[in-house]
């Protein structure tokens, strides 16, 4: 009888520990995340322009590895050229110091999570790969 109680108690403790771990778990680092899609900025923008709803279905919450030319450097990241003057790919960086050496016209490879489109298609939590 005592053994049973002990076992139940133990399961309870393990459960609470796992629960606490899950609850306080920080987000996994972008470096460790596998890319779901690899493509160029022009293609991503073209797909959002052609059919935003379909592109959202395809790309929202996905980790995207994107290649493109730097059009503009902003307070929080980089905007990539897409061949379309009105729409670019806005990459928001968690650590702005990551892009301190990036210059306009550079060709860069960036990994981030697609959060949708405002004026530009937006990628969050970006890191520079190359």
């Amino acid at each position: 009888m005592k053994k049973w109680l002990l076992l139940i108690g133990l399961i309870g403790v393990i459960g609470a520990a796992v629960g606490y771990y899950m609850y306080t778990k920080p987000k996994s680092a972008m470096e460790d995340q596998k890319s779901d899609v690899v493509l160029e900025s022009a293609q991503l923008v073209a797909e959002f322009e052609a059919d935003e709803a379909a592109a959202e279905l395809k790309y929202l919450d996905k980790t995207i590895e994107i290649k493109g030319e730097v059009k503009e450097i902003t307070d929080s990241g980089i905007i990539l050229e897409s061949g379309n003057d009105m729409v670019g790919v806005q990459c928001e960086f968690e650590h702005p110091e990551d892009i301190s050496s990036v210059k306009v016209k550079d060709i860069v490879k960036i990994k981030g999570i697609c959060t949708g489109k405002l004026l530009d298609v937006v990628l969050s939590r970006c890191i520079i790969i190359q």
Binding site: M22, Y23, P26, K27, I113, T115, L118, R125
Partner: peptide, 11 residues
């Protein structure tokens, strides 16, 4: 964009 809000905890 609502998905662009970054929290400390993943959950």
């Amino acid at each position: 964009l609502v998905k662009g809000f970054q929290f400390e905890k993943a959950l």
